[in-house]
Structures are given as C-alpha cells and as structure tokens.
Design a protein around this nucleic acid. Structure first.
Lengths: 335, 335
DNA sequence: CTGAAAGCGCTTACAG
DNA sequence: CTGAAAGCGCTTACAG
C-alpha cells in the first residue's frame, strides 16, 4: 500500500532516515526512531521486498524442493519438516519457497531458475543419496545449502546426520529379550544414505550380539507400504521365515503389518515389526509400531539456523551435527 | 550470475532488445530473438526476480499458510494440496510461498507482511470457516484469493465447493444394504464449513431414507484420531450403541477404528466405519476405510488456475466450482 | 525493428 | 544525527 516516500512525507523527513530508523541503525535519534516506527505501523508500511532485495542483493528467502516421490510416502515426515523450516525462517523474517518436482530434470531446472534469478539465498536438502547430484550442482553453482544427511561426493558441507547405531543396538536387544531372534531387515532405495546407514546399523547390532547376518534376510523394497507388503510376503513365505522384521522407514513397516495380518500372525507375539522415523500419524492408529523416532521438526529448524548463519556470513558453531533417534517401544514388538 | 547487461554486451545490442526478445514480444527480429535466447541460455541468464518484480509491480508468487493445526492432523491432505499448488504454479513460472502459523495472531501478521511488502500477488485459502476472518481481511486489503470452501461472511469470492450430498446418500444406502441402520456421525469444529456441510449431508441422507435423526448420535470431536477414539468410546458405551459411525474426516475414523478394535468389535461386520477426504496413507495400511474421496491435488490446481486468471486480469469462466467426492467402499463398511 | 532513458522502492556510503 | 544522491537489474513507453 504505502511506500517509504509516503511515510517520509507524512513526517517531513527524508526517506533515508525512515529506512535507517526502521532497520535499527543506531545513528538515529531515539525520538525520531520512535516516531518513525509509530507512523509506519499506523500507515501499514512494510518495506517492499523486491526493492529491498534488489538493493541488498539478498532474497531473504530459502528454498526447499519436495522430492518427486514425496507424494507417495513419508508424507508426515515432509509435512513436519516443512513446518519446522517455515517456523524457524519466519522467526528471522525469512520466507520459505517451496516447489515440488516430478522428475529429476524438473528439479534441476527449478534449482537453476532459483539460482540464476536470485530467488533464494540458500537451499535445504533432504533424502540425501550416496552420490547426490544436488550436492555437486549447488556446490558448483556456489549456492549455500544445508542438508539432512551427508553424501559421499567428496564435498564437505554443513549437515545434520542421524546416528542410529546405538538405537539399533537397543532395538535388537529389546527384540532378543522378547524372544525374537530371527530378524530380517527390509531396506529401501540402495543409493539412499538412509538405507545404507540403517542397514549397516542393523547388521552391526546383530554382530554385536553374535547373530550371523544372512543377506537373504535383508531384501530391499521401495520405502512405500505397498513395497513393504510385497517383500514381507516373500519373507514370510521362506522355509524359515523371520519372526522379526525391521524396516528402513515406518511406511514400509505399515505394509509389513498388513502382510503379517494376512498371514494370521499375532503382531507382537508371533512376529515383531519395527520401523524408523517415528512419524506415526497419531497415537490412535490401529497398531502403533515400534520405531526409532527422529525429532523432525527440530532437525529442520537446526538446518535453517545453520543455513541462516552461513547466509549472514557468521561462523558456524558446528558444521556437522549428529542426532540420535529415540527408540519408541510399542506392542508391535511385544511392548 | 549474469545480468541482462552481460548478455547485451556479449551480443553488442541493447538491454532493451534482450529483454524484449526473452519476453516474447513480437516486435523483435526473429533472428535476433533466436540469438538472444541462445546466448542467454549459454550464459545461464535468468532475469533477476527482484528487479523484474519491482519494475512490473508483480511478485509472480502465490502464498499459502498452513493452518496452525495442520501438524496435528490432515497431514496427507495438506501435503497433497501443497503439491498440487506447487505443480500448477511452476507450470506458469510462478512461485509458491509457504508459511505455517502457530496462532491466529501469527497468521494475521504473516498475511499483513506479505500484503504490505508485496511478497505475493494472491493467496489460496483452505479449511474455510462459517465466519472466516481471513476472507474479511483479504477482501478489505484488496488481496486476490481463492479458497476451498465458501464462508458465510456475505462476501462473494471465487472458490471451489465440495458437494457431498449425493455421496452421503450413496454411503447411507450402502450401509443400509449391509444391515447397518443405527448410524452415528462424529463431527469436528462446529464453525468449520466442512463440519457443517458434512453433518448436514448426513442428516439429509438419513431423512431421505426415512431414518429419524438422533442428535445424541451426532457428537463432535476435534478432527484428530485421538478425538475420534474418545468420542467413539462414548458412543459405544451408550445403552443402544450405533453399529455404523461416519466421520467428518478420515483422521477421526482412524481413531474410531482403534476404539472399535478395543471394544472387540469386528470391523465391517459388527460395526461399520467411514471417513471423508480419501487421503489414506496408502493402500496397505491395516484397515483401509470407506471414505468419500476428494481429488485434492486437482482441487489445488484449479484454485491456482482461478487465482492466476484473476492476477492476470482475465475473466473467470466460473467463480464457483462444485466438486463431488467419490465414494470408496472398503471392508470397513462390509466391503 | 532497435536503442536511450525513466523509474519501480529501497539501502547505504558520503557529506555535512 | 540527517539528507541528497547513486544504483541494484530490470521493463516499457517513446522516439527514431
């Protein structure tokens, strides 16, 4: 509605003074500042973002692209993640630009547009892969970013890493205590860091308890509940089926639940089922599953804090943050 | 990286011509245009958004605020909604600004900031209430918006309306055919249009089949699965409990499922359960519930198309679009 | 068909 | 402590 000129004119001072007063410079008379703030408030003045961005050469905006497949699974995860990003950003008067890409090509061209047109000052990444073109691309383009997960591209970048090694030890111990010793692990896309890490933690935990690792017991699905359902069906049809199925994510575990149900197995007694992420819809879904819970919203917030520090040219306290998931035990593994 | 000047200099032409060539004006020599496009592409030039916005007085951005409570329920709904918005917008080179408000106050100040600082050209609204301050606020502020749902503020605005009257008739008929005649309805927040409409359709459908409406059978919960669980527990403890429970949304129905399970009722035989929205996580959740499915993503797309037409000053084909949900029958109501 | 120039609304050295 | 002025990178009437 109103511009800085309107405010200046209304007060008979220069636009420079209005600008400085509003931006908190300390070389403005306290009384002047006070009057400017009041007048701006009254007139509903807020600096035009485009003009400010153009002048400051900063967008005050952070971008996040929903991976192509986010619609199909991990919805609660992304929802919570976006909420966390939005929260932390709006605290700092930054905005969150969101897009969703159907294909990798679209994703790439979105990044390109954002970067070339200076729409964003930084980007937050998710679902990192072992080799991740986004890491390479953003690094080459000199675009600041933080990520949940560390790729293996030989690029060092600020990130948050989930460390579930100890969590898996606790989970396996819990399963053993409840008499579930034939454990299987249903993984996901093999290039996903989440898959690689979680499978590794699972196998290490087995070894720690002296249980041999059987690769036939570690099939991969596609991280959807449908995938979990199909692969669980195969596992349960084995001559010596597992009596515990751990999953790379909760969604897969939901499918396993369904398959076990069809096989007329009593969940938590004849078979144990566990997931990962802890983004259960709510407490009152039919079978709450045992899971390793990630504080998704906090993770997102922290990624924003790190990114904003970088954008503002401040030194980062830590470039690598480690977060341990928390084991949530429910009746799906015998309570 | 590069600006319009760089491109112009590289080609020895004026920036005006570069701008016109790239923007598709027809008063540019075809050959010049071709060369400009190639050069821009090669140099990775994309017009600086802030400069363009400032000059054009348009943000080429649409805003959407996640309601304060979105974290707690309806996650898949919002996820799909946002995806639909993002899709349709990026097709037109528009961006989607997303924020989430914890309180109504925060939400209001976010809108205020977006409007006063010209961050967005239009806004999409969701979860419309009977009296909706947002409708009033945006109308007064002269900000363009479209919404899923029509409030009763006496303001006429372009919107999409879900019409489930026929769907409820089909659902009630289906339940009767399967022998479920004592029907209850668990509603939600009483000022929500969704609640008001759906309860009304339910009662009309009952009347249509000559079933008396019992207000004790129409309690309200809070649209979460926990709320559904609690209220279903109360219904099932009645002297003459219902044998069918219809819910204002799927989330509530999930809680009902849990409660029925605890009461040792066989779902789909001893009790029928139905939801609304059709945003089931996936096919292989434990009990897929009968629901009235809304094409969420399409709805979001259409809201964007309407909004963009308004932003571009084009006439709207329809200012009021009606969409009918589709009845999805599963074993939760006897298959 | 092309170019020179104005101006969108800010912020920020610079001068006083 | 305050103001005049430059300039961020575009788009678009206007002139030729």
């Amino acid at each position: 509605m109103s511009t800085i000129k309107d405010v200046a004119k209304a007060m008979n001072i220069s636009i420079a003074t209005v600008s400085r007063a509003l931006d908190g410079y300390d070389d403005v008379a306290a009384e002047t500042r006070q009057r400017v703030i009041e007048t701006a408030q009254k007139m509903g003045y807020s600096p035009n973002r485009a003009a400010r961005q153009l002048r400051r050469q900063k967008a005050e905006t952070v971008g996040f692209i929903l991976p192509a497949n986010a619609q199909r699974f991990d919805e609660p995860f992304f929802m919570e993640f976006i909420s966390g990003l939005g929260d932390a950003l709006s605290e700092q008067n930054f905005d969150l630009l969101v897009a969703n890409a159907k294909t990798e090509e679209m994703e790439r061209s979105l990044y390109e547009r954002w970067i070339n047109s200076r729409k964003v000052d930084g980007i937050v990444l998710n679902r990192i892969q072992k080799q991740d073109w986004r890491v390479q691309y953003l690094t080459n383009a000199n675009m600041l970013f933080t990520a949940l997960g560390k790729s293996q591209d030989g690029v060092e970048y600020p990130h948050i890493r989930i460390d579930g090694a100890q969590g898996y030890v606790e989970l396996v111990q819990h399963l053993l205590a409840n008499g579930f010793s034939r454990m299987a692990f249903i993984g996901g896309h093999e290039n996903l860091i989440n898959h690689i890490d979680r499978l590794h933690w699972f196998q290490s935990a087995l070894e720690k308890f002296g249980i041999p690792v059987d690769s036939k017991m570690c099939p991969s699905a596609d991280m959807t509940s449908t995938g979990g359902y199909i692969v669980a069906g195969q596992l349960l049809a084995l001559p010596a089926p597992p009596n515990a199925i751990l999953c790379v994510n909760d969604e897969t575990a939901f499918g396993v639940l369904h398959a076990a149900h069809e096989h007329r197995l009593i969940i938590g007694r004849e078979i144990a089922i566990a997931g990962f992420d802890g983004v259960q819809d709510a407490i009152h879904t039919e079978y709450p599953i045992t899971t390793l819970k990630i504080p998704v919203s906090n993770v997102a917030r922290q990624l924003v804090y790190m990114l904003l520090a970088m954008i503002n040219g401040k030194p980062l306290a830590e470039r690598q943050v480690k977060i341990e998931p928390k084991l949530i035990i429910t009746e799906s593994t015998g309570g």
